[in-house]
């Protein structure tokens, strides 16, 4: 069952639909199989093809204003990024196109708190909101055949990190040594919708050092608790 609103990309409203999803999951664990969220929608799948009337009735009456005085705890994740042409093949071209220095482009991209709206496209791929207008760039006409896991890119009004190797049409400006999707962990994705991401520029040495720690399994991503 699809629940759709029309408020657009709006953090406060988005937080309410996440609260609604949690509420539904908690109250109907036997019926609900999964709830996926978008910017302004929830898609609820059920374990059984046939729903009882009570659930139909409840869904008809859903009112987001119930969640007006929401208090939420979310995480702010600090994601180290090595912004460099050796791992960000489109960094130079994109800066030229924007008539700015690569340093300014990096500063602009790493100056923002990005909100994680949902995960989609690939396992563990975060849809981030908040990319500065100046950096908005249409996707490439022809997607690159292979973008490596960890690549940080810009596509349209969005920025994101490729969690796994994939073809893709985004402009790649850097790479994080952090793993966004780890199938060997009980929780393969460390973040959740509603969290924030800040990109922190690092140099090559730091990149290699963190990468080594990640591979050895003892790197902890820095985070802050946000209480709102």
């Amino acid at each position: 069952m699809s629940l759709d609103w029309s408020f657009g990309i709006e953090p406060k409203m988005h937080q309410k639909i996440l609260a609604l999803a949690d509420d539904l999951r908690t109250r109907h664990p036997k019926q609900i199989r999964d709830i996926a969220s978008g910017y302004q929608s929830l898609l609820v799948t059920f374990k059984n093809d046939f729903l009882n009337d009570d659930i139909h009735e409840e869904f008809r009456k859903i009112d987001l204003s119930r969640f007006n005085n929401l208090s939420v705890n979310t995480n702010r994740w600090f994601i180290p990024v090595y912004y460099h042409e050796s791992v960000g093949q489109d960094l130079k071209l994109l800066a030229e196109e924007k008539k700015m220095s690569t340093e300014d482009l990096i500063r602009s991209h790493s100056s923002v708190h990005y909100r994680i709206y949902f995960t989609g496209f690939l396992p563990g791929f975060p849809y981030l909101g908040g990319l500065p207008k100046l950096l908005h760039t249409p996707r490439k006409q022809t997607p690159a055949l292979s973008i490596s896991a960890g690549s940080v890119g810009i596509g349209g009004a969005q920025t994101g990190i490729y969690p796994v190797n994939s073809p893709g049409g985004w402009h790649i400006i850097g790479k994080t040594p952090v793993r966004l999707f780890d199938i060997h962990k009980a929780e393969p994705v460390f973040f959740k919708a509603g969290d924030e991401i800040i990109f922190e520029p690092i140099d090559k040495d730091a990149y290699l050092q963190i990468k080594g720690a990640v591979n050895a399994g003892h790197y902890e991503i820095r985070k802050e608790l946000i209480h709102d």
Binding site: R33, D34, A36, T119, P123, V189, A193
Partner: peptide
């Protein structure tokens, strides 16, 4: 594979 759609797992 059900119940992991919110993680982007098909």
């Amino acid at each position: 594979r059900f119940g992991f759609q919110h993680l982007g797992i098909p």
